[in-house]
Amino acid sequence: MDVLADILSAMRVGRPVAAHTEARAPWGLRFGHVTGAAFHVVLQGTCWLTPLPDSAEFEPVALGPGDVVLLGRGATHAVVSEPDVPLTDFAPSRSSPSAPLGRVVLPGPGGRSTIVCGAYRLHRHNPHPLLRDLPEVMHLSALPGRHRGLRAMVELLGEELAHEPPGATVVTPALVDALLVYMLRAWLADGDNAGGWSAALADPVTSRALAAIHAEPAHPWTVEKLADTARLSRAAFARRFTTLVGEPPLTYLTRWRMTTAARLLRDTDKTLGQVAVAVGYGSAFAFAKAFRREYATTPGTYRGTSRIGASPGRARAR
């Protein structure tokens, strides 16, 4: 079981929105808040990521060719050729319905920068802790020897956009879609940036337990059974899991069961009884009670509002 892939599958909504931006200095683009994570990939030239008055506070970040930045909470921000330039709203257009990405062109007399700008749509109601704990700004530098997989993806994306070879309309969106995985891999690999989840996924004991929970969320897991799977004593396993994951094993099990249930309610037509069985509950009533504790709404209401893009209610504070 690929735990990272499982988490992303549960939390992502649709395909990413992205645009190929070509700008000549001086220029500045304003980006509004997104329900998910915003990103920028610098293919050519230089620019700055800067906060806006209504955004979270962060220091301006200088970006160069090959650099990638992910705003993990979708905060408002600007990308500019230099500080204090006038800003225009980011409003991409498409040259044709088949164009692989939107397009933004900003003419000017100065140096040229080419950037892919966009956002990944993520469910933010009761988010998984790995995504909840993403930093406000994640800067993944193109320094030699670092994040080789991500750098290779950026180079491929640049080639597709620069030359538009046959099949680019299929390949380019797929590369943008896959970039999120490579960004998170790079962040997790940095360790000190990722907190407990970097260690949790790398640790053989905790990773075995997480893989078991994700593979069979409906299984009647107990701490003893998970400890056996992880090949550690019950007490030692519980301490290790809680330290690295940030919550006890059975608390995480409930969280993942409800996350899986939310995905089934959004993406399938399974009855409440079928969803209940799929996540380990003996009755629709017991499942609905547990779901309401996590999402502060009933499964039926969640299903209806999530399918029309409305907010399903305030998730329980953590």
Rank of each mutant, 00 (worst) to 15 (best):
Ile7Gly: 08
Ser9Pro: 01
Ser9Met: 09
Gly14Tyr: 06
Arg15Val: 11
Pro16Glu: 03
Thr21Arg: 03
Ala23Lys: 01
Ala25Gln: 14
Arg30Gly: 04
Val34Ser: 12
Thr35Ala: 15
Thr35Leu: 15
Gly36Pro: 07
Ala38Tyr: 06
Leu43Asn: 05
Gln44Asn: 08
Thr46Asn: 13
Cys47Val: 01
Trp48Lys: 03
Leu49Gln: 04
Leu49Cys: 06
Leu52Cys: 08
Asp54His: 11
Ala56Gln: 15
Ala56Thr: 08
Phe58Ile: 11
Ala62Met: 08
Ala62Ser: 14
Leu63Phe: 05
Pro65Val: 00
Pro65Met: 02
Val68Leu: 11
Leu70Arg: 06
Leu71Ala: 10
Arg73Val: 10
Ala75Asp: 11
Ala78Glu: 11
Ala78Lys: 05
Glu82Met: 12
Glu82Cys: 08
Pro83Ala: 05
Leu87Ile: 05
Leu87Gly: 01
Thr88His: 10
Asp89Lys: 04
Ala91Asp: 13
Arg94Lys: 12
Arg94Tyr: 12
Arg94Met: 11
Arg94Ile: 07
Ser95Glu: 14
Ser95Leu: 12
Ala99Asp: 11
Pro107His: 02
Pro107Lys: 05
Gly108Tyr: 06
Gly108Ile: 05
Pro109Val: 04
Thr114Trp: 01
Cys117Pro: 01
Gly118Ser: 06
Arg121Val: 08
Arg121Pro: 09
His123Trp: 13
His123Glu: 15
His125Glu: 15
Asn126Leu: 14
Pro129Thr: 00
Pro129Phe: 03
His139Ala: 15
Leu140Ser: 04
Leu143Glu: 14
Leu143His: 08
Leu143Arg: 13
Arg146Phe: 05
His147Gly: 07
Arg148Asn: 13
Leu150Tyr: 02
Arg151Pro: 13
Glu155Ser: 12
Glu159Gln: 14
Leu161Ile: 09
Ala162Gly: 06
Val170Gly: 11
Pro173Ala: 06
Pro173Gly: 02
Ala174Ser: 09
Leu175Asp: 04
Asp177Ile: 03
Met183Leu: 08
Arg185Met: 10
Arg185Ala: 10
Ala186Phe: 01
Ala186His: 00
Ala186Gly: 07
Trp187Ile: 09
Ala189Gly: 09
Ala194Leu: 00
Ala194Trp: 00
Gly195Leu: 00
Gly196His: 02
Trp197Gly: 10
Ser198Glu: 01
Ala200Val: 02
Ser207Tyr: 04
Arg208Tyr: 04
Ala209Pro: 02
Ile213Tyr: 01
His214Leu: 12
Pro217Asp: 05
Ala218Ser: 10
Thr222Tyr: 05
Lys225Asp: 12
Ala227Arg: 00
Ala227Lys: 03
Thr229Phe: 04
Phe237Met: 08
Phe237Val: 07
Arg239Met: 10
Val245Lys: 03
Glu247Pro: 07
Pro248Gly: 06
Leu250Glu: 08
Thr251His: 09
Arg257Asp: 01
Thr259Met: 11
Thr259Arg: 13
Thr260Met: 04
Thr260Gly: 06
Arg263Lys: 13
Arg263Ala: 14
Leu265Cys: 12
Asp269Ile: 03
Lys270Pro: 05
Thr271Leu: 12
Gly273Leu: 07
Gln274Ile: 01
Val277Arg: 08
Ala278His: 04
Gly282Gln: 07
Ala284Ile: 01
Phe287Ile: 00
Phe291Ser: 09
Arg292Asp: 15
Thr298Glu: 09
Thr298Leu: 02
Pro299Thr: 05
Gly300Gln: 11
Arg303Lys: 14
Ser306Gly: 07
Ser306Met: 14
Ser306Asp: 14
Gly309Asn: 06
Gly309Lys: 08
Ser311Cys: 15
Pro312Trp: 09
Ala315Asn: 07
Arg318Lys: 12
Arg318Phe: 13
